[in-house]
């Protein structure tokens, strides 16, 4: 029983083969790791198609779901942790490594392909129509093998997955060297350091501004530096003090002195309270 490869499959093969080699080359030639991951995903999807073409629909699905879906997402996740921008420098640190690797790799590839081609010249393909249909389908056939001939290996692999999961937990675990600090401990620590013990002063908020980059004013009219978050301060993104508005407000307050003192002109404005409540 000899199965011949039809033209349709040949077309699929050549398309997917080219795509997968391009993806592989892209993987090793991209400078940025994210690009590599995306190229690899292309290769894997192409391979999934080839699996299906090779009468292995179950593996093709698993390839897409597990590899392209789960494993590649895991890779991308780790890449996000490590830093998306991380890219290799082009300078090779080990002398001669790159050229030796390329020459040896190509030599190895040639040996491999030559060996395979030599071994498979004139090979006849039996095909999987028989085995696949024996128990009603590819999945049923695989299941039968897995739970009969390969049962021990299957169980061992199950154990391996558990161990791998636990191992990942252990590796990623960070040991605590001292007891967790409570609120009380933090309070004591803050007082002991002698810095400003209470809350920082909130940003200066006036009737017309409620942005955190507005500095608060001290009684003498100067700026309270600490009222603005440090990154803004360092960047110099302080909103300049609108002296005209202040003067106007002061005049208004003096003009309506009979209405009573108004120390906090914005206190009644519920939407303009960006700082922490006191």
């Amino acid at each position: 029983m000899i199965e011949q490869i039809g033209t349709g499959e040949a077309v699929v093969f050549w398309v997917c083969a080219v795509l997968s080699v391009v993806g592989a080359l892209g993987l090793i030639l991209s400078r940025r790791a994210v690009h590599s991951a995306l190229w690899l995903a292309l290769t894997m999807i192409s391979l999934a198609v080839l699996y299906i073409a090779n009468a292995a629909p179950f593996l093709g699905m698993v390839q897409i779901i597990v590899y392209t879906g789960a494993v590649m997402m895991l890779f991308l996740f780790v890449l996000m942790v490590v830093g998306v921008d991380a890219s290799d420098s082009l300078v090779e640190t080990i002398r001669g490594q790159r050229w030796a690797a390329i020459i040896l790799g190509l030599g190895f590839g040639m040996l491999l392909t030559a060996g395979i081609a030599n071994a498979l010249v004139g090979a006849q393909m039996v095909g999987l129509d028989g085995p696949n249909s024996q128990y009603g389908g590819n999945v049923e056939g695989l299941a039968r093998l897995l739970f009969s001939d390969y049962l021990v290996a299957f169980e061992i692999v199950a154990a391996l997955l558990i161990v791998a999961a636990v191992g990942a937990l252990v590796l990623a675990h960070r040991e605590k060297w001292q007891p967790k600090l409570t609120q009380r401990d933090l309070a004591i620590q803050r007082v002991r350091t002698g810095l400003h013990p209470g809350n920082q002063p909130p940003p200066g908020v006036y009737a017309r501004h409620n942005s955190v980059d507005t500095p608060a004013l001290l009684p003498d009219g100067s700026i309270a530096e600490q009222s603005v978050p440090e990154p803004l301060r360092v960047r110099g993104d302080l909103r300049p003090v609108d002296t005209a508005a202040i003067t106007e407000t002061t005049e208004l307050a003096e003009g309506h002195a009979a209405d009573g003192p108004r120390d906090h002109p914005v206190a009644d404005d519920p939407g303009s309270s960006p700082g922490e409540g006191r």
Partner: peptide
């Protein structure tokens, strides 16, 4: 030399020799 890639290179050489 502590470089994993050098060790891998040596492995490749070994594979080629076996082949």
């Amino acid at each position: 030399n502590g470089f994993t890639r050098s060790y891998a290179l040596v492995m490749v050489i070994g594979v080629i020799v076996v082949f």
